[in-house]
Design a protein around this nucleic acid. Structure first.
Lengths: 693, 693
DNA sequence: GTCTTTACCACCTATGTGCCAAAT
DNA sequence: TTATTTGGCACATAGGTGGTAAAG
């Protein structure tokens, strides 16, 4: 039985953008010393979106021989068969007359069982100055794409809540409010863009993505705060070129079982042991007869080591990440592993106060905060709250064993747990619980579109915004002044408009934010000289903006016909200012009726500067634009005057009706669009202002 | 003092294409057993051009931290800074309104001194079934490009002559006629396309290119014949997309000091020692006190080990090949190394009979055949013949020492040796020596454009074709029936037409040939399913066609202002049928007057199928189209009705006058173009027939 | 028999891991 | 002190080298 992944999808699949730059400000108490002026300047940049990162030296490995097999048989010349070149070809293909074909992406998490094992215990990911990979590698199988269409796959990691954690008494518990967020970075899969056929051929791995705690990282690694909880997200964008990303629809998928707490040193021995048992690179620490290293006291779990075995098994299978280093688990990582259940997943409450001062708690109720959301077997109530101090409905399982048991109950894909504890969420907005309930409404079918919404702190959990989304205040959301000079949020998806104006703008921002670091792998290309095509891409998108972290192999191999129902989706790229209350919006797709309450996750925010300064990139402006819920509420949708029409067909969503209603919102969007400027050409980016910096 | 690289440049910088596919036929006596049917089918494909190969898993490595420095300072977001993503950005830039800016590429070989050390002794490159890198890594520094324009950099390795060699009495000597050529493959630098600024930022390394003797290689490695001499070539193409390669101008650069003899096992101990001393991966064989391995009897040369030291030094410098494995020598590999002298270089005589039966010679006169061309210090006579039995003017130096000494004399960039022994060259054509002399004419200034010409066997040396080029038979060359069902050759450059019709067609072929092997790095994508956008790219360009061999880091870092004068150039991609006499043509640029006799090297040939079958991809057709010399002879040029106008500005050549004369040729070109079809859109490839296969 | 090719090996580089002690 | 973070370490994987002996 296949589980339907939870997809965060805006009604019209419009991307959701949130401000990213400025998310961390150099003067915050947190590691100020480690924040050089250069970094500050970068942060000061009008980069409201997470930086786009791509595997840099990823092109290191060779394609396994067998990977190329078939070419000759096909009568093809046994010639160039490598990743990079393949990408070029893909690009070439994109030049063909494009015929929009409906797609209906189904995404499943690879090695789900391994992830579950970690999740049960409370996944921890080490973050180091030099960058560390995620161990259970984030890998997904995709199905339902338009074979001929080209897609860009991305991944980012957002805060799961706004709490800081501590490992006390063998369990994680909230230890106060989250530290200022780090600059958001969007990691673009190195094989992007590639055809749907290519992406579906084999699991797509993101193991090149690296985590770091170095706020001034120049590699494009994902910067995280230690002792904070994060949620990885996966995005599918139908676009031929990264250039088009701004005008494209983002379909976001979240796998609750992949959340984790970033640490600089493992806290839970069980996690350590699980890592050692499954990560080939940690073999040296296994107690294989010959008294291996100390420490590891044979902690629990026979640690199946299933992952590694799988790696071995399909090492030849050609993974999408054949690059050196990562022994990727084959698509058959495990019988079930192959079919991950991308639940809509809980989330939640990154209410500024939720975790704020619970620094001294140690309350047993909270210990489970760190480990809540789970992939329950269709149990509509398997979702659990994250951080919040008030993890009321969360049974505090003292023993992981117990917890595991309880978790086994929930395996259904769409099981959503209405934790009913997001009371604090609405604090900033006057949204009512009604909206929440509305969301909880239809958690039945194996496919529940998850709403994408923007949130100031860009936490994963946007519980408080949720209400907003359903409150129908969307129209009012626009240009709502922010509390504290925070950027306004724009959620294109909320307007159900085709990936046009708003989307374009949003991505423009996103890319703009990306303009921070870079230089090709080649080396030190100074920003000045290298910089780039300021005139062609909005917000001065320079090559420096892009950093890759290594490239896994392209996705090939077999086709995975998983009958998932998915949700098209809202985009999700943006940065958030340091956790502060800001206007946030939530978009809701028409399908949302089948979604559950906590189904929305907080995508990045899209900060909008007030019209006063034509420069939208200026952060901290009083005026903000929030995208409110739209679909479920208004039921009407409107497409913005298509800026990028070729992206509208994206998902095979049934809701597919751009240009419907919500005219006022559109007008506002247009205004915003005007401000953003430079988004005139359909598909191509028109020269917009570079980042004012 | 900077040395001007020798550039092979067609008058109008038109690419030179030669037939590549079918170059090896499965039924040849040579290793027939190792030629599976699949390979045969591939060969049978209408791939007349060398397969395009790109580093596959190249995206493995991370960009050195420092490489990204500057981004933050520039106010950019310290985000994505990786190779792949950078490439995407480059692509984005390309979408900007393109303004043709004159460029004047200067190319210098990196680590020239190291190459010289090997060259003096007689470079040997091991080729293995699994693929072996070249040791002195082929790396160049580029200057003079249009910073904003995008370029595709390529490399290929062509036969230096048509002789087979043997190492006898401690020296290489001709041992008969060359074996059938292997399928030609063009290796596209994985960072392609990238802006001129990016390419110039740091040396561009091609260390991911691998050599193999496995005729059925599916990795896209360059297939060579053991005991044969080869000459690596470097090509610069101004194009935004690989798709445009067919319509673009190729500027080819040859560095004589990089030629080598392919071997399966080292023959000359001195080479072995030099490799051990300089290749970091061979450190284990160095006799560092602790009695290292046997064999190495401390053979001569303290073997400076300068290369490795350099590698260490600039490991941090961010090379264009930061990918794992290759410890690239920094840009400062050596004081002089950085400034290689890409001499026009000799060449020569791949006359079918030249080396044909000299299998029993052992004549001391020939021993030096293997090591002739050298980078002499502007000594116009430093060029030496390659293979030919009649290496008359080549002093047979019994001792390498002596040879080295003699070589030290020649360091000038443009020293060209008129060996005056290409008598046999003109055998096939009735060209007179006059043309040869004309070439020898001006070897004075530090910049001598080298002619690119097509030759049936696609050997590096095309001496016999040279005469043809100047004979003014170009017009007649078109559609000349081939002797033995060999493909016809088309040399767009000869027509001085802007990279339009012909070029397009040519590259179409080239890419078509590429369609053989592949699958992305991701793994086993079967040709069938993956295949690709047959409708968009002429000749069925599938992703399988492209294979990369690993990706070095993008080129960044500093800018190298080397005042080289170079030559724009003829393209060079194609396959050659097994050495057989076929119609060949030679293009000559107006500058050729300053070139020397043996300055031309043989680029690949561009096979043209006769019009009878609309399918140009059919090999062995009686009708062929050869491009004859054009510039020097006719002095008039004509541009084909621009198919791809944006490529015309390419080089900063003075000869830059597309659309001049030679109308008839153009008409023919149009006809051919028509046949090729699908080349209607300027820049973008229009859907043309897929390879009829 | 000679010459060339192949497979396998030990020895390198490069980099991913968790451990541990020292630093913060 | 306690809680985290840092850098160096030994041990993995992945892959580049030439040597060597055995195979063509």
């Amino acid at each position: 039985m296949i589980i339907s992944p939870r997809v965060l999808d805006a009604p019209m699949r419009d991307p959701v953008f949130t401000g990213a730059a400025m998310a961390y400000h150099p003067f915050h108490a947190h590691r100020p010393a480690d924040f050089p002026m250069s970094a500050f300047l970068a942060a000061a940049q009008p980069s409201f979106f997470p930086a786009l990162t791509l595997p840099p030296g990823a092109l290191t490995k060779q394609i396994p021989d067998h990977a190329l097999s078939g070419a000759a048989e096909a009568g093809l010349h046994p010639a160039l068969t490598r990743h990079h070149q393949a990408a070029h070809l893909r690009t070439l293909k994109s030049l063909e007359p494009e015929e929009e074909v409906e797609d209906d992406p189904k995404v499943t998490l690879e090695a789900k069982d391994l992830w579950d094992q970690f999740h049960k215990i409370g996944t921890e990911m080490v973050i180091t100055k030099s960058g560390r990979r995620m161990f259970p590698p984030f890998k997904v199988r995709i199905n339902g794409l338009d074979k001929k269409a080209k897609y860009i796959l991305l991944m980012d990691i957002v805060a799961a809540d706004d709490c800081r954690y501590k490992f006390h008494n063998s369990r994680w518990m909230v230890a106060g409010k989250a530290d200022p967020e780090m600059p958001k970075r969007m990691y673009i899969h190195p094989d992007s863009p590639a055809t749907g056929e290519q992406w579906m051929a084999k699991p797509v791995a993101f193991h090149k993505l690296k985590l770091t705690n170095n706020i001034s990282d120049k590699h494009g690694f994902t910067i995280l705060n230690s002792m904070h909880k994060y949620q990885p997200r996966f995005h599918i964008v139908r676009a031929n070129d990264i250039l088009k990303l701004p005008y494209s629809t983002f379909r976001t998928y979240v796998f609750p079982e992949t959340d984790f707490i970033a640490v600089t040193a493992y806290q839970n021995d069980k996690i350590t042991q699980l890592k050692i048992d499954n990560n080939p690179f940690a073999k040296g620490f296994r107690d294989t007869g010959n008294g291996r290293r100390e420490k590891r006291k044979q902690l629990t779990l026979p640690s199946l080591r299933m992952y590694e075995d799988q790696c071995k098994a399909d090492r030849e299978g050609g993974d999408s990440d054949a690059s050196s280093g990562e022994p990727t688990p084959g698509r058959d990582a495990s019988p079930l592993g192959a079919v991950s259940s991308p639940l809509r997943f809980s989330r939640l409450s990154r209410d500024e106060k939720a975790c704020t001062d619970s620094d001294q708690e140690l309350d047993p109720r909270e210990e489970r905060c760190a480990r809540a959301s789970s992939p329950g077997p269709r149990a509509p109530s398997s979702f659990s709250p994250r951080c919040e101090d008030e993890v009321k409905d969360r049974p505090s399982l003292e023993k992981e064993e117990d917890y595991l048991e309880s978790r086994k109950q929930s395996d259904s894909i769409f099981s959503i747990r209405n934790t009913e504890k997001d009371k604090s969420e609405n604090r900033h907005r006057k949204e009512t619980e009604s909206s929440k309930k509305e969301v909880d409404g239809g958690v039945k079918d194996g496919f529940s579109p998850l709403m994408v919404q923007t949130e100031s702190p860009s936490h994963f959990s946007a519980g408080h915004l949720q209400s907003l989304a359903f409150s129908g205040l969307h129209g009012q959301q626009f240009f709502n002044p922010l509390n504290t000079g925070q950027p306004l949020f724009i959620h294109p998806g909320q307007f159900a408009m085709a990936p046009g104006a708003f989307s374009a703008m949003s991505m423009g921002h996103l890319l703009a934010s990306v303009s921070g670091a870079s230089g090709l792998e080649n080396g030190g290309l100074s920003a000045q000289g290298t910089g780039s095509a300021p005139t062609s891409f909005p917000f001065h998108l320079s090559q420096h903006m892009l950093a890759s972290q290594g490239i896994p192999m392209p996705t090939f191999g077999g086709i995975f016909p998983y009958p998932y129902t998915y949700m098209a989706a809202a985009a999700a790229a943006a940065s958030a200012l340091p956790s502060s209350s800001a206007a946030s919006s939530l978009s809701r797709s028409p399908f949302l009726s089948s979604s559950r309450s906590r189904l929305r996750f907080s995508p990045y925010q899209l900060p909008m500067s007030i019209p006063q300064s034509t420069n939208l990139l200026t952060t901290g402006l009083p005026a903000s634009l929030n995208t409110g819920s739209e679909s479920s509420k208004s039921g009407s949708r409107e497409t913005s005057p298509g800026l990028d029409q070729n992206h509208t067909s994206g998902a095979g969503q049934s809701t597919h009706s751009p240009k419907t209603t919500l005219k006022e919102s559109i007008n506002e969007l247009h205004n915003i669009q005007r401000l953003v400027r430079g988004i005139q050409r359909e598909g191509a980016a028109s020269p917009s202002r570079d980042s004012p910096k």
